[in-house]
């Protein structure tokens, strides 16, 4: 039973990483209708930039990072990555909006390749993994045999706060109403005077910023960062978004946690099984619920 709860905690922490990343996939899909295969790389950019930001801060203060510094680092990383997301959309995806979906998908593959290989080619980054600084205090708590670290608690708490903020923005603010309008019907939204370009840019900004935070959290648990880390985490989070019902933000959160938890439990049996389980769960869910757990299919008008 203790093992069960211990695994559940690992599952929750991994699930929160997936959920944060899946939110970006699902929002971009909901608004623009494209699968942004480069989304996972925003996670890597977030983690990598945190490494350099921490180095810079440590140089100046030469001691351990203070809470204020950590918050500043996280905010800079999130905003910076968000801006890169906006830039990527403006340069590579915007001209493709009215083209077949596959074109945008292949372009995203190209963008992803660029985002990975550009830092890899830069001499001060390079292909080798580098250690991730400790941002959060490490205190171990023991609850009846189950160990929880303060890092886990902080990151779980922060990711839940971020998700609540996002949910609030999308559902309770005028901005969110505009986003929902664009995702339902672009032409109608345009007629209502909504600036679609701004909404799409904002969606990419929020998505990339959340990806950045998920990168920081992921690297806080598995403290190693390299330029390729985003690609397979991205694939899995995309799976999470689909199994939850792509286009639905609650679906992305649910899917992320389902995937994280099932992966940790399966990995405790066999590591390859752990890798496969997400895909198996996905196929099973899609066979019975073809639009994912919370997704809805609309009837095609004939």
């Amino acid at each position: 039973m203790t093992t069960f709860f211990q695994l559940l905690i690992y599952g929750l922490q991994l699930g929160s990483v997936y959920a944060l990343l899946a939110l970006g996939y699902t929002m971009v899909y909901g608004i623009v209708g494209m699968i942004n295969f480069a989304h996972g790389d925003f996670l890597m950019i977030g983690a990598l930039s945190t490494v350099f930001l921490a180095m810079a801060f440590m140089n100046t203060s030469s001691a351990a990072l203070s809470a204020i510094q950590v918050i500043t680092i996280i905010l800079i990383a999130m905003i910076g990555t968000g801006l890169i997301g906006v830039l990527v959309e403006a340069i590579a995806y915007k001209p493709l909006r009215d083209r077949p979906r596959m074109t945008a998908l292949i372009t995203a593959v190209g963008v992803s390749m660029f985002l990975q290989n550009f830092p890899r080619a830069l001499p001060f980054i390079g292909p080798n993994p580098r250690p991730f600084p400790r941002l959060f205090p490490l205190v171990q708590l023991n609850l009846g045999g189950v160990t929880i670290t303060s890092t886990q608690l902080i990151m779980l708490g922060l990711s839940i706060i971020l998700m609540v903020i996002l949910y609030f923005i999308v559902n309770k603010t005028p901005l969110g109403a505009q986003m929902r309008a664009v995702s339902m019907d672009k032409d109608a939204a345009l007629l209502m005077g909504i600036n679609i370009n701004v909404i799409i840019s904002l969606t990419f900004f929020i998505g990339a910023a959340l990806a950045s935070s998920s990168g920081i959290f992921y690297a806080s648990i598995y403290p190693q960062v390299d330029v390729y880390m985003g690609s397979w985490l991205g694939t899995k989070s995309f799976i999470a978004a689909v199994l939850g019902g792509i286009g639905d933000i609650r679906g992305a959160m649910l899917g992320g946690f389902i995937l994280g938890i099932s992966e940790i439990f399966a990995t405790s049996i066999n590591s390859n099984l752990g890798y496969m389980i997400g895909f198996i769960v996905l196929i099973l869910i899609l066979l019975f619920k073809p639009a994912g757990l919370l997704g809805k299919f609309s009837i095609e008008k004939v």
């Binding site: 699968i35 979906r101 997400g278 895909f279 196929i283």
Partner: peptide, 19 residues
Amino acid sequence: LKGDYLAIVTLAFGEIVRA
């Protein structure tokens, strides 16, 4: 399955074979 859903299942298939 339609469009993107089929895409993601084929992706999952490829990765399941590999694993």
